[in-house]
Design a protein around this nucleic acid. Structure first.
Length: 260
DNA sequence: TCGGTGGCCCTTA
DNA sequence: ATAAGGGCCACCG
């Protein structure tokens, strides 16, 4: 668990703090941005270990040991000491259970601006819904960077907390995932996403669903699309097709034009 | 339908 | 500083 750095640092403060409790010591070290705490939490795909500090969750991995976790942490985040925590940050376990992780704070300080933008956009996808990689690219103002979006999501330091599993391929298939494509499918199904339906829609050439009463078109999983009754449901090939038929894009799910 | 190909673009070694 | 490579995508056979 210990890097070369943490013994001198922890040892020094231990002496300085005299008989301080572990919590008190962490409080000081955390305030100085010198350590993260880590703790195990249950998730939909098994127990995870999360690291966190005063800024938020910094790292999450599933099916790992503290030693492996620390190694991954050092590689992706940096050589910062980790110290065991007694309990997870308030609200985290519930948020992971419901998938509503939007208000959980995350610490992305060690990541590049592009990565942060990508991850921030991914956070906007609600439980039970999915968006294509292309959608993230458009959302952050880099419509051609879809491949780089995939790479950035692949480096998501806090999967599940930032729901990168809700970003899928344009053909409706789930695509890759940091914990494996199988887990991605499992998580999405558990969140209520019907992957087979999405693939079937795409095979039929349907990219969006419109309502002929509101004149709005949506991603198929958008909560607004799901409320359209059968008789008013219009199947649309792509955004161009939709606009030609005078549908306007849903303000909630923000359909984007297909790539040039 | 599946698999390969070329294009894209950000990050890292 | 540059080149390789990756959770993509559209296109083609």
């Amino acid at each position: 668990m210990s890097s070369e750095l943490d013994e001198p640092v922890l040892g020094g403060l231990r002496n300085l703090g005299g008989h301080m409790s572990q919590e008190q010591r962490f409080g000081i070290l955390s305030a100085l941005d010198l350590v993260d705490e880590y703790v195990s939490v249950p998730t939909a795909i098994g127990d995870a270990i999360v690291a966190f500090n005063q800024h938020g969750i910094s790292y999450l991995r599933v099916a790992t040991t503290p030693a492996q976790f620390a190694a991954g942490y050092a590689r992706q985040i940096g050589p910062r000491p980790l110290t065991p925590a007694r309990r997870p940050p308030p609200g985290l376990v519930t948020a992971l259970r419901t998938g509503r992780t939007g208000r959980i704070r995350v610490d992305l300080r060690s990541h590049a601006p592009f990565q942060r933008d990508v991850l921030a956009a991914a956070r906007e996808i609600p439980v039970g819904e999915v968006r294509p990689y292309r959608w993230i690219a458009a959302a952050i103002g880099r419509p051609n960077a879809t491949r780089a979006v995939g790479t950035a999501l692949g480096h998501n330091p806090v999967p599940l907390v930032i729901p990168c599993h809700r970003v899928v391929r344009s053909d409706g298939k789930p695509g890759g995932y940091v914990f494996g494509a199988v887990s991605k499918e499992g998580i999405l199904r558990r969140e209520g996403v019907d992957i087979d339906y999405l693939v079937a829609l795409h095979r039929r050439g349907v990219g969006y669903i419109g309502s002929d009463t509101t004149g709005v078109f949506c991603h198929p999983t958008c909560h607004n699309a799901r409320r359209i009754t059968d008789e008013h449901r219009v199947l649309l090939r792509d955004a161009m097709h939709a606009q030609n038929r005078h549908f306007r894009p849903c303000r909630a799910c923000r359909p984007v034009p297909s790539a040039a």
